[in-house]
């Protein structure tokens, strides 16, 4: 929770760069190894080749098993630079589609999570009745739920962003509920009794004590939730016929064996998830800036 001083950045940068370098080396090595068979068969026609030729070929194939990082980067840059923002060829278009359903689902999921948590901490009955179902809901794989939700909502006339946001919400609300139940119960007895001596209403106790006490619990769960929301939104894009969104892009990529396209969509979704998580972290620092640095 503590805001790191600026010097921390430099201390963090070196290990991160080291790991990045190791990943890139492994990636290149993997690309050579995995693409070798295809290169030998299709490019060299099982004929003789030198090591230099092999490396140069495996790292620049059109449909590699594992595309090399520079291929993915080139594809990514070309999609961002060569096509207008509203073109389905531009990855940012798909990012926007996925981000939209993610954010709507996240907002709804957070709201649902907080309402459920508030209900649970204020009612012993709801605590016993709801919590097992909430936990059980998360044991059903989202891949199994997604088509059902899409079909049902579609038959009710909801299409487009609504079903995707619903599935994102389904993944978002759970961590928020669990963390908020814990957070709303975080006030100590002495703090509760203090408000009791002021004859504060339940609503006042919630607003003035329980909710502020819960914030340090809420924000980490929001970071988990928004990352889960990206997954939910992308999974929801798969059965829709794959028109738009990063999930759709992944699906079309696999249809046509466009492995480079799959990887650049994957990279974009990782960047989207990272960006959203960082944004939540920024809001967290802003909201908790006056709290004691732990």
């Amino acid at each position: 929770m503590a805001a790191r001083p600026a010097a921390g950045w430099r201390q963090q940068a070196l290990p991160v760069a080291t790991v990045l370098l190791a990943v890139l080396l492994l990636w290149y090595g993997g690309a050579v190894g995995l693409n070798r068979a295809g290169a030998v068969e299709r490019v060299f026609n099982n004929g003789p080749y030198t090591l230099g030729q092999l490396v140069a070929t495996t790292l620049n194939m059109e449909r590699p098993v594992l595309p090399a990082p520079h291929q993915v980067l080139a594809d990514l840059v070309s999609s961002l630079v060569d096509w207008p923002l509203d073109s389905p060829r531009n990855l940012l278009y798909h990012v926007a589609v996925t981000a939209q359903s993610t954010l709507i689902g996240f907002a709804l999921g957070t709201l649902l999570g907080m309402v459920l948590a508030a209900a649970i901490v204020h009612s012993r009955t709801l605590d016993r009745a709801l919590l097992p179902w909430i936990v059980a809901s998360q044991t059903v794989p989202v891949l199994a739920i997604a088509p059902i939700v899409l079909v049902i909502l579609g038959s009710l006339g909801f299409s487009g962003v609504a079903p995707k946001a619903t599935i994102a919400m389904y993944l978002c609300f759970f961590p928020v509920t669990v963390a908020m139940v814990q957070g709303l119960r975080a006030p100590q007895r002495i703090e509760t009794e203090l408000l009791h001596t002021y004859a504060a209403s339940r609503w006042q106790a919630f607003w003035l004590l329980r909710l502020p006490s819960a914030l340090p619990y809420l924000f980490p769960s929001l970071r988990v939730a928004i990352a889960a929301g990206v997954v939910g939104a992308m999974v929801a894009e798969l059965p829709t016929g794959a028109q738009a969104g990063l999930g759709a892009k992944l699906l079309t990529g696999s249809y046509y064996g466009n492995t480079v396209g799959i990887w650049s969509a994957l990279l974009m979704s990782a960047l989207l998830g990272l960006g959203l998580t960082l944004a939540v972290g920024g809001v967290e620092r802003l909201a908790l800036r006056q709290r004691r640095p732990a």
């Binding site: 001596t197 504060a200 914030l215």
Partner: peptide
């Protein structure tokens, strides 16, 4: 009827409120 003020063994101040806002708490309620 808010006939009494109670001081606990621990200060029980809310850490997210400034000193002023802590003292304002009962008045706000």
């Amino acid at each position: 009827a808010r006939a009494y003020g109670y001081v606990f063994q621990a200060p029980a101040l809310f850490p997210w409120r400034t000193v002023l806002a802590n003292v304002m708490l009962p008045l706000q309620i």
